[in-house]
Nucleic acid binder design. Structure first.
Length: 430
RNA sequence: GCGGGGAUCGCCUAGCCUGGUAGGGCGCGGGGUUGCUAACCCCGUGCGCUCUGCGCUCGGGGGUUCAAAUCCCCCUCCCCGCGCCA
């Protein structure tokens, strides 16, 4: 949510930004918001004047009664006021709702370094690491490989829950846990506090962290309860300090969430539909930071560096893209995607998304920082994956596949798997 | 699920019965005083606006009234006990 004061004082700054996004409907919305705000302030001033008069009369009646004088005349004037005040208040409330809705739909201001582009094909590569391995054999789709290794049962999962779910089995469960353990340990070493959050949230809290459309498209609702399953641990971590004033001595607050998360909408189909690239349920270690506004760009680079470090440690080639205006969405001021190399698809695919939301998310959540009784400011929020094990597993399976059908365990994960060096079909074990 | 108690400024709390400017303490910020740390005194400390001023704010919504934290109705959430339970 943008600051209404910025919209009043510098609408042209916002107009230029919306032009970069090529979003004429948002520019129109901006004009609507400006108009509603002007009407709102006028109506508010009028209502306040009437309320002032009402309060004066009320006070006079109190004094007259105390002095034993007649109050008939005053009462007559006062009786007329409520109706006029109500009419204005109704108008003020309606305008305020419009303004709020409009503000929720206007996107964040972009950082100047965000490239202009129409969609994800125009994201700009800013870094690249590792050399994709050459394979002398034909790679199996990771879904088939999983089944051959006895690591997943898709059919029985479909039987009991439908597409988009799976039974993860045997060594693959261990691999999943090892990835989580490794990333969590890494984040803790960076000074982040581990968070195991609620997996469900009430609607009021959820409205602070997602777009309204997401309730229809993304969120699972618990029937008969005011609860939604979390779509990422970014949500409960962001909402954690909702409606609070954070003592600025506590900043920066660095959190790393570990959670299972749930999404209804799992997107379109591509290569290798069977598998765990897009799931209704997956595990993720997440990074989240609340910081001072002047520090957020430094933090953005640090979160990106953490994500890169994790994939480098896994020895999986990746590249980093600066996400362009057509792909960045409404909340982030700047977003890096880290894309791992997927040799089967012969392309880089998103495994980490790293955003600086500046004050946009915190304002919406009504989070302030500073000294109570002193000056306050809106802290900046940032979030990034550290590892999502669904896609992390796919990246490992594809990059570490061997000609004999086994999969080598990345070196850094072995201590989390009891020293195990590779994953083989169960019948090959001694 | 049953019974009871609560929600007032960042935190703690008074006010509610009996309607008439929401008070105090802590914490925090600023100033003063004092040879140190301390103690003490004064001012400030929610949100909004067309900002010397005014309006709003007592969990939310409705009602009664010239006037509601206070009276009436509905709802939400939290806590305690009992029951059930990994």
């Amino acid at each position: 949510m943008l600051d209404i004061r910025l919209i009043r004082e510098s609408p042209d700054v916002i107009r230029r930004d919306l032009a970069k996004r090529n979003a004429p409907e948002k520019a129109k919305l901006l004009d609507d918001v400006i108009r509603w705000d002007k009407e709102w302030r006028e109506a508010l001033a009028n209502a306040d004047a009437l309320k002032r008069r009402r309060n004066e009369i009320t006070r006079q009646i109190a004094e007259a009664k105390k002095a034993g004088k007649a109050t008939d005349k005053l009462r007559k004037e006062a009786a007329d006021l409520p109706k006029r005040i109500d009419a204005l208040d109704t108008k003020i409330d309606a305008l305020a709702v419009n303004i709020r809705d409009g503000l929720l739909r206007l996107p964040n201001l972009l950082h100047e370094s965000v490239p202009v582009g129409k969609d994800d094909t125009e994201n700009v590569e800013v870094a690249k690491w590792g050399t994709p391995r050459k394979f002398a054999f034909e790679l199996k789709p990771h879904g088939e490989l999983l089944e051959a290794l006895g690591g997943a049962d898709f059919e029985r999962a479909r039987k009991i829950a439908g597409a988009g779910f799976l039974y993860l089995l045997g060594d693959l469960v261990r691999l999943d846990q090892a990835l989580l353990q490794f990333a969590l340990d890494y984040m803790i070493k960076q000074g982040f506090t581990a968070v195991f959050p609620p997996f469900m949230m009430r609607r009021a809290a959820y409205e602070g962290v997602v777009d309204l459309a997401d309730f229809e498209n993304v969120m699972y609702k618990i029937e008969g309860e005011d609860l939604y399953l979390i779509a990422t641990s970014e949500h409960p971590m962001g909402a954690m300090f909702m409606d609070e004033v954070i003592d600025d001595g506590r900043l920066p607050i660095r959190l790393t969430g570990i959670a299972t998360q749930f999404r209804r909408e799992i997107g379109g189909h591509g290569v290798d539909t069977k598998g765990l690239f897009r799931m209704h349920q997956f595990n993720k270690i997440e990074q989240f930071v609340f910081c001072r506004p002047e520090d957020s760009w430094t933090w953005h680079e640090k979160l990106r560096a953490n994500g890169e470090a994790i994939y480098r440690a896994l020895e999986i080639p990746y590249r980093v893209v600066n996400v362009c205006t057509g792909d960045i969405g409404t909340v982030a001021a700047k977003k890096y995607d880290i894309e791992a190399w997927f040799p089967r698809q012969k392309k880089y695919g998103e495994v980490i998304s790293c955003s600086n939301c500046t004050d946009y998310q915190a304002r919406r959540l009504n989070i302030r920082a500073g000294k109570v009784g002193g000056d306050k400011f809106i802290p900046h929020t940032l979030n990034s994956s550290a590892i999502a094990t669904s896609r992390g597993i796919v990246a490992v399976l594809e990059n570490y596949q061997q000609a004999d059908g086994s999969v080598t365990v990345p070196r850094v994960l072995r201590t989390f798997m009891g020293g195990q060096k590779d994953i083989r079909p169960p019948w090959e074990k001694g």
